[in-house]
Design a protein around this nucleic acid. Sequence first.
DNA 1: GGCTATATGAACTCAGCGTGAACGAATTCA
DNA 2: TGAATTCGTTCACGCTGAGTTCATATAGCC
Lengths: 224, 224
Amino acid sequence: MARILLVDDNVKIRKLMEIYLKRDAFEVLQAEDGTEALSVLKKHNINLIVADIMMPEMDGYELTEQLRDAGFTMPILMVTAKETYADKKKGFEMGADDYMTKPVDMDEMLLRIKALLRRAKISSENRLVLGGVELDYEALEIRTPKQVYLLPKKEFYLLFKLLSHPKKIFTRQELMDDIWGFDSEVDERTVDVHIKRLRDKFSDLEEFEIVTVRGLGYKAERKA
Amino acid sequence: MARILLVDDNVKIRKLMEIYLKRDAFEVLQAEDGTEALSVLKKHNINLIVADIMMPEMDGYELTEQLRDAGFTMPILMVTAKETYADKKKGFEMGADDYMTKPVDMDEMLLRIKALLRRAKISSENRLVLGGVELDYEALEIRTPKQVYLLPKKEFYLLFKLLSHPKKIFTRQELMDDIWGFDSEVDERTVDVHIKRLRDKFSDLEEFEIVTVRGLGYKAERKA
DNA sequence: GGCTATATGAACTCAGCGTGAACGAATTCA
DNA sequence: TGAATTCGTTCACGCTGAGTTCATATAGCC
């Protein structure tokens, strides 16, 4: 599931947003200004940012600009009380993807977040299916035609990541950044071990497999 | 510049949008309902669609759904007089990327269109096609009409380089500098071997070939 | 024909990967 | 609380195939 960072100096607003987002099974992280947001981004792999503009320390414009300059490409949804054309223009020009004015309709925000994630090819479903393997994010379960497994966390997130972009090759580093966190220092071979354990569970499946791409990484796909 | 298709049954609104879009150097095409839009899409390469929901013949929802089902991935901005949550929800669920309610602020529409195009560009850079050969560089696969190959790293990058500038002759040194690195010390003949392995995979293709230019190098092109 | 550049089959090699086992950490259970 | 189980990680050893080289055949050019 997608990981969303809320940046707003108003705790009540963050709390409200969190409730709505968690109800839709998003993972939520929070920061109260741009500076704090940047430090969160260093430690976690974030899929989308919801940022207020008016904030102490570093405002939403500056945050957006710094992120884009630093090469971050995740969608950014700006939220603010300001609603003049000039404000919106500035927000979009800094690199925001969408813009909503307060008071924010939470339901509409959810729709927009999902549309952004869909466009960015980050799955926002809590159910994934590929080649006879069904993954239930809430229960950490996978269902194959023959069996239901309750997977250990690491194995589950790994499979989930692979299934979120079928056919896309993920390097071990990418997988580790996402599942272990950017600053983790686990051995790259650890990924291999988890892959093997996943493979063992699918060994008898006809339609699904995890493919090794030598020198690059792994990918999930339907068997030929 | 981007080519935008406006779909709305109201000529005046289309005209107004056209003026604003052309002022920003967009290329504008028009259709007055979903059915007409589909026929325009068959003939032209469209980068983004602005669609009204209420239309005779085929409404915006249906158009969006048909487009997504048919595999079109360009951003769609929905514009409508309706503004209930249910309407927005339906629009987004059908696969729209953004949603604005009438009366539309033309300046904001431009900002949103630009943001959508920017985002679409970021995520559509994974494919390359020439003469019936499709190259997917997320999956490291090439698809020919007859088969799909998962290429080894070096072979893939080599083909990718050649296809990035069809008809351009690349010297072995150029190819090596790019794929092996400037300081590499591999034999020039190594390139030949990889070229051969690529050729083997295309041996039965009618439209595509890698041509040797004696004394210079190789180039990729459509067969005569 | 003679020279040079390229094609091609085959052999080699070593980085990258699979895998079993082992051990500590975390979690569950009694 | 301690015991039992499950989970996460590391390590070491062996295998494999992608990448390279080499030797020979073939093709292009004057």
